[in-house]
Design a binder for these strands. Structure first.
Length: 228
DNA sequence: CAGTCGATTCACT
DNA sequence: GTGAATCGACTGA
């Protein structure tokens, strides 16, 4: 018998803890995304922690920039970035403020609004693939840079109108949580086991090691042909 | 200011 | 398993 998911919104104190404590605690929680066409809800099954300016794998490494500014702000806000010229990824900022930590939401199970999600994720072969991967999750939830900085704890008055909220859901038992190295992270940041996922869940994305960019001859404009 | 490459995904061999 | 797609942030000169 399945216990009904707890729809109590999580408040800011949930995020105002060390990121390595928050990350595994996010598994089984439910993120509600309110779109123009209706709500989409995802039960988080895979996350990764990024731990401050000293973490070589983090966008916050080497300090604050315009892009990563949200990570340096208060916990409970969304850090959304654009990558590979076509994808968005969604993070939730953790405490303490100024430490620049965040949790990348890597995968989840769409538990409401699958039809809506499917319109943006037409190539998904099954519902379990709708949010199987960080860019897929952001796409399924219609998350883009406009949501960067969004308060997911919904301050006063933001309640029902908030574009994103995090609900208590059904946190998983520690015995169900596995951890390992972060996906796609290279260099000195590769070895920390800061990726957390729910054991045996089909919506968890496959691990991939960092793939260094193929170094080819740089194609520069051919100045030896054409008119001179 | 130009070069490099990314917390990825998809099509194809 | 390999390579392309695609653009903007970041870096170093």
């Amino acid at each position: 018998m399945t216990v009904a998911s707890d729809r109590t919104p999580l408040d800011r104190s949930f995020f105002d803890r060390p990121v390595l404590e928050v990350a595994p605690d996010l598994l089984g929680r439910v993120l509600v995304r309110r779109t123009l066409h209706g709500p989409i809800e995802v039960r988080l099954t895979e996350v990764e922690a990024y731990a401050g300016e000293a973490d070589p794998g983090s966008h916050a490494y080497r300090g604050r920039t315009e892009r990563n500014a949200v990570m340096f702000g208060p916990p409970g806000h969304a850090y959304v970035y654009f990558t590979y010229g076509m994808w968005h990824c969604l993070n939730l900022v953790c405490g303490p403020e100024g430490f620049a930590s965040g949790v990348l939401l890597r995968a989840g199970e769409i538990v409401r609004g699958a039809e809506l999600a499917r319109t943006r994720r037409a190539t998904a072969r099954g519902d379990h693939e709708l949010a199987k991967g960080p860019a897929r999750l952001a796409t399924a939830l219609e998350v883009d840079r406009l949501l960067n900085g969004t308060d997911v704890c919904g301050g006063r008055g933001a309640g029902r109108e908030a574009p994103m909220r995090l609900l208590a859901g059904d946190p998983v038992r520690p015995s169900e949580v596995l951890r390992g190295p972060r996906t796609g992270v290279g260099g000195d940041g590769a070895n920390h086991p800061w990726r957390f996922w729910i054991a045996g869940d089909r919506t968890v994305s496959p691990y991939r090691a960092h793939t260094p960019r193929r170094r080819g001859p740089t194609r520069r404009p051919d100045t030896t042909s054409g008119r001179t």
